[in-house]
Design a protein around this nucleic acid. Structure first.
Lengths: 249, 249
DNA sequence: CGCTAGATTGATAACTGTCAAGGGCGGTGG
DNA sequence: CCACCGCCCTTGACAGTTATCAATCTAGCG
């Protein structure tokens, strides 16, 4: 595996940027976050960061690449229940005294920061950071609910459209978009395991979206050509992804 | 509408019982919970307790009946993303500074305690209660993930089987089961909106489970006749519903 | 005792999965 | 630098599951 340029400020990049969207952070908060870069490591695609049944501790932050939370059925079927994209942090201490009911694994090569329990306690001891992390967690839960809506009440094409809209908003929040396009470095099988479909059907549905002029895909780059129509067809309303920022009162 | 016997100790019943499953509560904690009974009210079926877009505050506790979190599509399709059964509490302050991204409504007549913001702060100020509420919230999130698995990767019959197993465990935790049976006072349409199906298909799938000797339904009473086989077919593992209790260390 | 919401059932259509066979592209090793 | 290999993407034919539409039945309730 190639050695990539050092972790440097990589971690404080997307994570800081994301949390700033949820809480007004100070210099010291940013510095504390930066401290955690030390643990940044490059992890190849298809690696489990945590397995079901593990006793989690500390935190995990993704600064590059896509990871996911998932579960497997006995027949090998996989269901992805969340994407972890750059800037996403998952607090493992949150389940103190318990074990993982699902696994977290990389979908692509990822740069990951494992934050030790003590370090994560330090982060949480900072009010602004704690608030940001807490709100991010609340949004994560809202995303779970929206995914349930997606799986239960939207058609194949609508599910993909909705997912792409959601990812556009989330990627934009960490500065990883360019207009209405962003890198979606995952496989059609991954999309299938996310949307409860088959990779074959994902392929056909993507074709449908493309032929309708709604999306375009060149390599890993996904472009939402007609965002308005895409949002409309998926009934995408980004309200669940945002927190109202405290007004300067 | 009939006036039912007063709220009395109703609230501290299921709520206390449930939270005790997550945290070791003291007398004073129980008393604090009991204080909140004052707000207990009877709400008819089909009533929204909170609507999408509302600015939530305080807490909401269900002591009798079934309620749910849900969202609607423009065409009227409904997706239920969680059940609130007796003992369940939802902390609305948790989304401080934000608005509901979904609604909460009753599926049956419910006895509901609305806990004012100040009162809920009091509850959370008690460490043991705060811990219990926090862990309950974590389990709620785990349930969301399991439901995603259900919708994405299980067949119609398996989804229902899994749901029934989950409810058995949850109802048992608040003492509302008798052996392997409990009251499931909701409609097949509700089940359909929960499992992402049609009420027609729910009806057929229920028939399939019944003919297979796995379940039995008399009026509102649901009996899981062959729990072992039901759990096996749904690949139900209750681990996501439990927290390891702190060992007496 | 009539009403009405919910439960059933049948026939048919639509959507999505399964199986199978290429095709393309990037990465690896010679 | 090129051929080979493997993973992923595409596509076609067909099967299976679930949705729709419509009618009837049933039980709880006023």
């Amino acid at each position: 595996m190639k050695v990539l340029p050092g972790g440097g400020a990589a971690m404080s990049g997307p994570v800081l940027r994301k949390l700033q969207g949820f809480s007004r952070l100070e210099e010291a908060d940013a510095a504390a976050l930066a401290m955690c870069e030390a643990g940044t490591r490059l992890v190849p695609a298809g690696t489990d960061l945590i397995r079901e049944g593990d006793r989690p501790e500390g935190m995990l932050a993704i600064t590059e690449g896509f990871a996911c939370r998932y579960k497997l059925r006995e027949n090998g079927a996989r269901q992805i229940m969340a994407y972890l994209i750059p800037g996403d942090v998952c607090d493992l201490d949150i389940s103190v005294l318990n074990r993982m009911d699902h696994a977290i694994g990389t979908l692509t090569t990822c740069r990951v920061a494992r934050i030790a329990p003590e370090a994560s306690r330090d982060l949480r001891s900072r009010p602004a950071l704690a608030r940001g992390l807490h709100r991010a967690a609340i949004v994560d839960e809202a995303i779970l609910r929206e995914w349930i809506m997606n799986l239960g009440r939207r058609s194949a094409v609508e599910r993909l459209a909705h997912l792409f809209c959601e990812l556009l908003v989330r990627m934009r929040a960490v500065g990883l978009t360019c207009g209405n396009s962003y890198d979606l470095p995952i496989t059609q099988l991954d999309l299938a395991d996310t949307t409860g479909m088959t990779s074959v059907h994902v392929n056909r549905s993507l074709g449908e979206l493309r032929r309708a002029g709604l999306i375009e895909r060149k390599g890993k780059r996904l472009t939402l050509c007609d965002l308005a129509r895409l949002m409309e067809m998926a009934e995408f309303r980004p309200n669940y992804l945002h927190r109202e920022m405290p007004t300067a009162a």
